[in-house]
Amino acid sequence: MTSFAVTKLVAAKDLRIELRSRVLINQVLPFAAITMVLFAFALDQDDLLVRVAPGLVWLATLFSMLVVVQRSFAVEAGDGALDALRVAGVPAQGIFFGKAAALAVQLLVLETLLFAAAFVLYSSRFDGAGVFLLITSALAASCGLGLVGTLYGGLTTGTKGRESLLPLLLLPVVAPVLIGATRATEAALGVGRISMQEGWAWVALLVTYALLFGIGGSIGFGPLVDDTA
């Protein structure tokens, strides 16, 4: 079975599990929405909210991602499914890209709804000129997040309280995505003094990030999840 076939199977499996259990919709989305509301409580100024809305959307995405990543591996841990796949000789790369793809799709759904929430809650405006930039940057960012999330999620899954390590490891790693995605979104929405051209430069960074972690992750994922000595 080729790596690509494995990727498609694993991604489809993860998304099917999500469709049936609806954890993203029932639990993660309300959490993200509450986060957006709490931001408004903390920041307290309406004109400030419009200005920082892009950053807040991506912050809420990152915090929610922690939950989604842990969920992504919790579905495997129950029956030892990940170990079973590896013992059966399934290529680690296929599993890695499959789970990363499913994670990216879930994040894209989350981001779409969070942007909609921002338009409502923070009165973000949108003039259509930046829609292509907005979509591209969200795609690039989600790919990067899916890849690193799967990588570090695989490391911290398992017993003995490893999950609490996920935020400490993952949040520093995704800092470039936060910076790049926020700047690109600001350019797309016409917020702040950043040009569309600069926004596209940030998208280039996001794509580079995804490429580098795609390569690094496909090499590192196997050793990280194989707990045999």
Binding site: P172, A175, P176, I179, G180, R183, W202, L205, T208, Y209, L212
Partner: peptide, 9 residues
């Protein structure tokens, strides 16, 4: 990656 993006920022 972080160094570059922060430097740019």
């Amino acid at each position: 990656l972080v160094h570059f993006s922060v430097e740019w920022w």
